[in-house]
Write a protein that binds this DNA or RNA. Structure first.
Length: 584
RNA sequence: GCGGCUAUAGCUCAAUUGGAUAGAGCAUCAGACUUCGAAUCUGAGGGUUUAGGGUUCGAUUCCCUAUGGCCGCACCA
C-alpha cells in the first residue's frame, strides 16, 4: 500500500469522497482534518460538527455514517474513533508509520513529494531591502531572515523563486549625504572604513538640515542634480552604493542569502513616466493639491488618505517606484506571486499600493499576480521603545553575529575540547549565526520583538543549538557504529514497538503538514515549532531506547528511525536557512 | 481626531487561524552520566488568557465597550 507524503491531505480527500457515498451534501462538507493532540490520535476531522449543526442533525450519527462510508483501506491504515460531540479521531497504525518511513527515504524524495503545490509558478520575493549608506543593524535582521525562509519554503513547494533585494538607493537621504560629503569628508576615515564614514556624514547632513532650512534647501538641490544625472553627484552616489553593497554582502554570506537580483529604487527611475501615463489615462490617479494621487472611494480610510505617486514638485517617490516595480515583476519575471517582507509600519502603504495595482492591472488587462505583504513587528528594547544601545546608537548586525559566534566558541571549547581550534571556530560560526536566525524565526512574526542579547545568542531551551545538538548526536551514533549513509538508511528491522519509538515516528510523519502550514501562512515559526518538537521526541527516545543494542533487528529499526529524524531535521533546518553540523 | 497592530505563567514566547484538560523555554525545586554526546532527559510548583459584555454545542481565537502598549495617517522610505 503506498503511503502519501502528506497524510492529512490524503485523509481530507478520502473523507470528501466518503461524504458523497454517505449521502451528505458533499459540496458543503469540509472535513477539516488537522493534526491532533497526541492524547486523541494523529489527526482529527472536525467538519462533522459544523455541518451537522447547520442542518440540525445529530453530529455523532453523521460521524458514524461518514466513518461507515470510508473505504476499507482507511481502516487498515488508521484506528478510527468517534469521540466527544462528534470528533473523528484517526490514529496511525504502527505498520503505516513504518511504511511512511520506508517510503520517504531521501532528501530528493521528500522534495519531489512536496513540490506540487506551487509547481511551475514564479514568485518574486522582495526582502532585506536596506537603505544604502548605512550599516545594517538588528532591525534589518527580521526581513532578511524571514524573507529567506519564505523563499526556501516556496521553492520546496515547487515554485521558481526570484530573490530581489529592493534596496533604498534613490531617496532624499542622498541630498543630505552629498551636501555633507562636499563639506565634511574625512578622507582618511573614508579609506579605513568607508561605510562608517558615510554614516557619519549622513548624520551630519541630517542634523544640519534639521537645524537650518537653508541647508535643507541646498540638500534638495543636490538631490535634484543627482536625479538629473550630474556626473559629480552621480560618482559619489555610485561609490556609496558600491561600498554599501559590499558590506551587505558580508552579512548575507553569513546568513546564507544569495539574491538573484538587486533592483533598487534607482533602477525604476526611468520607468515612472509610463506609470504616470497609465494611471492617469485609466482615471485611477488624479491631481490634488498639485500632486498626482490615488484615492480609493470604496475604502473607509483611503477615500480621503491619498496615495501620493507624484509629488507637487514633480518628483517621484517610493509609491511611484513601487508601482513600477510591480509592473516589472509581472512583465519581466512573469510573476504568479509577489511577496514583500517589511515591518508592519508600512502596512498602509502596501494596502494602498495593492489596491491601486489591482485596479490598474484590471483596467489595462494585465494578469494580476497574488500579492502578499508579509509584515513583522518592530524590534524593541526591554522598555518597549525603539531599540538603542546604552550610548544611544543602534546595535550593528555585524556585532551581533560576532558576539553570537564568540559565545558559541566559548561553549564548544568547554564541551568539545578534543577538537582543534579550527574545527571549533567552524562549529561556532554555524551555531552562532543559526542561534540568531532561529531566535527570530521561531517567534510569530506579527508580534513585536523584544531584543535581548541573551535571547538572541542563547544556546539552551528552544534554540538552534538544541536542534543542531540533536542532529549531531544522530551523526555521532552512525559514526560510532561505523554505519555509512546516515541520511538515507534503508534498514528494515523489526516492527516499531516502544512508546518512544512510536512517538518519534508519529512526529516524523507530520513534517509535510508543518511545511504546508508554514508555507500557506508564510509563517516560518510553525516549522520551527515542529522541528523543536521533533528534536524533543528524538531526545526523549535517545534517553530511553539505545540504538547500539546487540539485537540486530532492533538496531536496524532504530537506525532507520534515526536516519529519518535526521533527514527531516536537516531538511527543515535547511528550509529555515540554517546550516547544520555533524558534530559540535 | 481617524485607523491599524497588540495584551496569555515571575520573564520571553506557543497554541495549526473557532475544537477536547491553554503548552514550551528561562528562572525555582527534586531526581538521572563506570553503558550510543548531560549543549541532554524525567518530574514538581506556577493561569479568572488585561477588564466587562455578546455570538456559539464549543472562544486565547470572532463581535461590542473600556483600559494599557506600539505604530500609521499630503508630498520620508
Amino acid at each position: 500500500m503506498p503511503v502519501p507524503f502528506n497524510l492529512a491531505d490524503a485523509l481530507d480527500s478520502v473523507l470528501k469522497s466518503a461524504a458523497k457515498t454517505a449521502g451528505l451534501e458533499a459540496d458543503a462538507f469540509a472535513p477539516e482534518v488537522r493534526t491532533a493532540d497526541a492524547r486523541h490520535g494523529d489527526f482529527q476531522a472536525n467538519g462533522v460538527l459544523g455541518y451537522s449543526k447547520a442542518r440540525k442533525l445529530n453530529p455523532r450519527a453523521t460521524a458514524e455514517k461518514l466513518v461507515a462510508a470510508l473505504p476499507a483501506e482507511v481502516s487498515s491504515v488508521y484506528e478510527i474513533v468517534i469521540a466527544g460531540p462528534g470528533f473523528i479521531n484517526f490514529t496511525l497504525k504502527p505498520a503505516t508509520l513504518q511504511a511512511w518511513l520506508t517510503t520517504h527515504d531521501s532528501a530528493a524524495h521528500l522534495k519531489a513529494s512536496a513540490a506540487s503545490a506551487k509547481h511551475g509558478q514564479a514568485w518574486v520575493v522582495d526582502y532585506s531591502s536596506p537603505n544604502t549608506a548605512k550599516q545594517m543593524h538588528v532591525g534589518h535582521l527580521r526581513s532578511a531572515v524571514i524573507g529567506e525562509a519564505i523563499c526556501r519554503l516556496l521553492e520546496f513547494s515547487g515554485a521558481r523563486v526570484v530573490r530581489d533585494n529592493h534596496i533604498g538607493d534613490w531617496g532624499t537621504q542622498f541630498g543630505k549625504l552629498i551636501w555633507a560629503y562636499q563639506r565634511h569628508l574625512d578622507a582618511a576615515a573614508l579609506a579605513v572604513d568607508p561605510l562608517q564614514e558615510f554614516e557619519r556624514l549622513y548624520q551630519i547632513g541630517n542634523a544640519a538640515a534639521d537645524a537650518d532650512p537653508a541647508v535643507l534647501e541646498q540638500a534638495r538641490e543636490e538631490l535634484v542634480k543627482l536625479q538629473a544625472g550630474d556626473p559629480t553627484n552621480l560618482a559619489v552616489w555610485k561609490k556609496i552604493n558600491d561600498v554599501s553593497l559590499g558590506a551587505f554582502q558580508q552579512i548575507y554570506d553569513q546568513l546564507g542569502i544569495a539574491f538573484d537580483v538587486t533592483l533598487g529604487e534607482s533602477f525604476y527611475n526611468d520607468q515612472v513616466e509610463r506609470i504616470y501615463r497609465e494611471l492617469t489615462e485609466t482615471g485611477i490617479a488624479q491631481e490634488s493639491q498639485g500632486a498626482l494621487v490615488v484615492f480609493h472611494p470604496e475604502h473607509p480610510r483611503f477615500k480621503t488618505q491619498p496615495f501620493i505617486m507624484r509629488k507637487a514638485d514633480g518628483a517621484s517617490n517610493y509609491a511611484t517606484t513601487d508601482l513600477a516595480t510591480a509592473l516589472y515583476r509581472l512583465e519581466h519575471f512573469h510573476a504568479d506571486g509577489i511577496v514583500v517582507v517589511t515591518d508592519f509600519r508600512q502596512a498602509d502603504h502596501f494596502e494602498q499600493l495593492f489596491l491601486t495595482v489591482k485596479k490598474w492591472f484590471a483596467a489595462k488587462n494585465y494578469r494580476l499576480p497574488e500579492l502578499h505583504h508579509v509584515t513583522f513587528g518592530a524590534v524593541t528594547g526591554e522598555d518597549g521603545k525603539a531599540l538603542r544601545t546604552r550610548d544611544g546608537g543602534t546595535i550593528k548586525l555585524k556585532e551581533l553575529l560576532a558576539e553570537a559566534e564568540a559565545r558559541a566558541f566559548a561553549l564548544v571549547s568547554e564541551r568539545s575540547s578534543d577538537l582543534t581550534p579550527e574545527e571549533r571556530h567552524a562549529i561556532a560560526g554555524v551555531v552562532g549565526v543559526a542561534s540568531v536566525q532561529y531566535a527570530d524565526l521561531s517567534q510569530n512574526r506579527s508580534s513585536d520583538y523584544v531584543f535581548s542579547w541573551d535571547k538572541m545568542i542563547s544556546l539552551e531551551g528552544n534554540t538552534a543549538a538544541y536542534l543542531l545538538y540533536a542532529g549531531a548526536r544522530i551523526h555521532s551514533i552512525f559514526r560510532k557504529l561505523g554505519v555509512a549513509d546516515p541520511l538515507s538508511r534503508t534498514d528494515q528491522g523489526s516492527a516499531l514497538e516502544t512508546p518512544a519509538e512510536l512517538a518519534l515516528a508519529r512526529k516524523i510523519v507530520k513534517f509535510a503538514d508543518a511545511i504546508r502550514l508554514a508555507t500557506e501562512t508564510l509563517r516560518p515559526h510553525f516549522l520551527c515549532l515542529y522541528l523543536y518538537e521533533l528534536a524533543g521526541e528524538f531526545s526523549a527516545f535517545y534517553a530511553v531506547d539505545k540504538v547500539a543494542v546487540d539485537d540486530l533487528a532492533v538496531r536496524a529499526r532504530r537506525l532507520q528511525l534515526c536516519s529519518r529524524t535526521l533527514l527531516v531535521l536537516e531538511t527543515g533546518l535547511g528550509l529555515l536557512g540554517l546550516r547544520t553540523l555533524t558534530r559540535m
